[in-house]
Design a protein around this nucleic acid. Structure first.
Lengths: 204, 204
DNA sequence: ACCTGAACACCGTTCAAGT
DNA sequence: ACCTGAACACCGTTCAAGT
């Protein structure tokens, strides 16, 4: 073979990403390999390195797509909720459902933190920041008496919390996935946190 | 060589575990390999499989030790706290400090969930359950008006939350590790959750 | 210019063969 | 009985060589 040019660079990238995502969905994070992706799209391993820096770079792009889909769903949920508290509960539900509907893809986002020497690229970081901003927006109407910084901090604490319940549940931890449903735990976390956050008196 | 018998089975296990832990501490999860462990203790790869089922089994035993140390520190913190609220805040602090003092070992516990076909062994699960039980105990004096089940659920939601902040911070997420310290976020989560949980009225 | 295919340096796991 | 060492089937990554 050699010199095929059947597909443009962009086409190759798209094919590789789609193939890689399918492997992850079916076999999970551990099942993914450069060789498998290459053979799935009918090319040699070497070709993959023409179009991605390395496997971590490919994974980063899968994760970018995953974060985009998650963000879209979070946005969508915000157009059909009643009050601010309900909006936050909806965000939590969407997050949990997204993770449990597609556990392998979701887990990949948080399994691969060691991108390389020069850290996570800014365009990718923005996708995470954007998600926290969504929580912050939803929290704002409930926090009139708080400063901007306090709201930011609260959104981070709260969403870190929701995320924790989510991944402990995915990992099938005995302590979490036991009797209660993940949705119930998330509801408990959000609603109790909000009760505390919106009550006027500071306890310390 | 062959037929050395320099070390008993138990000695070999201990040596392998110690060597593996050192590799994890220094090089992280990705740096660990059966061959490296074997060569670090002066044996061949095959020997490792005489004394552990496989690499996942070895990792499980590293994680068991990590959970034991964490549990010991959590226990210790409970003997020097004032009221129930302070005890819970201390638990959170210990958890976060433990994770950030030894990020690689801590991350290993939650990175490796796919033990094998027949799931996580009961003796290991118990180490996780034990930790949640500690939170539940600390929570109990604050929840006189709640049922046993409600307290259990609250301890799971709360500790899932603390865990989430913890790992997002370790992963150096821009949303979390930003301006606020992890300790502050944990404090915010616990103290606001408790305010909500201990306030009498249910909001729904 | 585009892609291959072989090479390099690694993996986890098994198991006949040596002492 | 204990341990080796070679084998097997995989990895990620690179790059001279082919068309």
């Amino acid at each position: 073979m050699a010199r095929r040019s059947d597909h443009s660079r962009v086409e190759l990238r798209e094919m590789a990403l789609a193939a890689a995502e399918q492997i992850v969905v079916e076999q999970g994070h551990e099942g993914l390999s450069a060789r498998k992706v290459a053979s799935a799209i009918g090319y040699t391993v070497g070709t993959l390195y023409l179009v991605f820096e390395n496997l971590d770079d490919l994974i980063l792009h899968i994760n970018a797509r995953t974060l985009d889909r998650l963000h879209a769903r979070m946005i969508a949920s915000q157009s059909q909720c009643d009050d601010a508290r309900d909006c936050l509960l909806q965000l939590g539900q969407v997050y949990i459902r997204f993770a449990s509907d597609d556990p392998h893809r979701f887990a990949l986002v948080f399994a691969h933190r060691n991108v390389d020497d020069r850290g996570i690229p800014a365009w990718y970081q923005e996708k995470i920041t954007r998600m926290f901003a969504l929580v912050e927006e939803a929290l704002e109407p409930l926090a009139k008496q708080h400063t901007r910084d306090a709201i930011t901090q609260a959104s981070r604490a709260l969403w870190g919390g929701v995320h924790g319940i989510c991944i402990l549940a995915l990992a099938d931890n005995p302590g979490i996935a036991g009797a209660d449903s993940v949705q119930d735990l998330t509801h408990s976390l959000i609603s109790n946190y909000l009760k505390g956050f919106t009550s006027s008196g500071s306890m310390r």
